[in-house]
Amino acid sequence: MDKFDCIVIGAGPAGLSAALTLGRARRNIAIFDNGTNRNRVTQASHGFLTRDGIKPQEFKDIAMKELQSYPSISIFHETVIEVDKDNQTDLFFVKTSNNASYMAEKILLATGIQEEFPLSQVKQYYGKSLFNCPYCDGWELRDQPLAVIAENSEHAIHLTKLLMNWSKDLIVFTNGHELSDQVRNVFESKKIKVYTSIIKNLLGDHGKLERIELESGETISRSGGFVVPRFYRPNQFAEQFNCQVDENGIIITDGNGRTTVPGVYIAGETEKAGPSSLMIAAADGFKAATSVNMDLTLERF
C-alpha cells in the first residue's frame, strides 16, 4: 500500500493550492480528484488576479499541469469513498471507488460543497444566466432586468441590497413564501416588486433566462438573476472523524486549517459549508498546507 505524508482530498482551488504548497515543500503527497468541482457549470470564473474570466476547467488544467512539475506529488482521478484513522499508529487509510487503498500521516479535506436549489428548473440556467454570487457574476449582468429568487426574508433583503449596486431593475420572487412586514416595507419604499406566488416554470433557451411563469398565471420578463441555494457537504468525512462543528455547521479550526482532530486539516468551502471565491479558497489551501508541513517538521525533527 502506498504511504504518503499527506493525502489531499479534493482538487478545487483549495486542494490544488495545498498540493502545490506541499509539493514545493518536498512532501510526498497525493491529491484525489473526481471532477465534481462546484464551479464546473460556470462559463467563466472571476475575481482571481491574472485569471479574471478564465473558464473553470482551464483554471484547473493549468493548476494540474503546475503540480506535475513536482515529483513528490501524485495525482489520482478517483473518488474517495472511505476514510479511517488507526488510533494505534495514528495513520489514515483512504479507500476509493476503484477499490484501491492508500495510507498517509495527514489528511487534508478540500472536497468543497454542492448546491440544492429551491426549484429544479434552476439547474438549466445555473452558471449561464442564474447565479448565486454577485461578486463573481454581477458585473456581467449589470443594468439588466434581474430576478432575485429567495425563500426567506433574511436572504431576500441581503441579496437585493447587495445587487442594487449592479442593477436597479430588480424583482424579488419568494416561490410561495411570505416575507416579514419589515422586509416588505423596505422593498415598497425602494419600489421593488415582490411576487410571493409559487414559481411554476422558468422559461428561456439554451440556459438564457427570458421569463418567469408563476402559478398565479402571471409571466414576468427577466434576462437573468440570482438565486439563494442551500449548500451542503457532499460527504461526511469530517463528521466521521468527529471533528467539532459549531452551531452554524462550520467546522472548528485554529484559523490555519487544523481541526480539533490531530492529523486532520480542512480548507476552502468544506470548512464553512458555504460559498467562497477562488482566491479565498486558494489562500485557505495554502494556510492549511503550511500547517501540515510545520506539524510534520516538528514531529520528525
Rank of each mutant, 00 (worst) to 15 (best):
L159Q: 11
P275K: 01
K55E: 15
F237A: 08
K168V: 08
Q68A: 12
P145R: 00
A282Q: 09
V292D: 10
A281P: 13
A30M: 06
K168P: 08
G138Y: 07
Q57C: 03
V194M: 05
V122L: 08
V292H: 03
F131H: 08
V8H: 14
G224M: 10
D61M: 07
T42E: 01
E151P: 00
M294V: 06
V80H: 05
F32Q: 07
Y125V: 01
I29Y: 06
G138Q: 09
E66G: 03
I73P: 11
I280A: 10
D137H: 14
R51K: 12
G112Q: 12
N87K: 09
K123F: 03
G257D: 09
C6S: 14
L119Y: 00
S45T: 11
M294N: 15
I7N: 11
P71F: 04
R300M: 10
K95M: 12
K65S: 13
A283P: 02
S97L: 15
N293M: 11
T42W: 00
S216G: 05
T42Y: 02
K55M: 11
K272P: 00
H177D: 12
N132V: 08
K85I: 04
K287I: 15
D2I: 07
N37D: 09
S189L: 08
E247V: 13
D84A: 15
R26K: 11
C243A: 15
S120R: 05
R184M: 07
N28A: 02
D90F: 15
R27M: 13
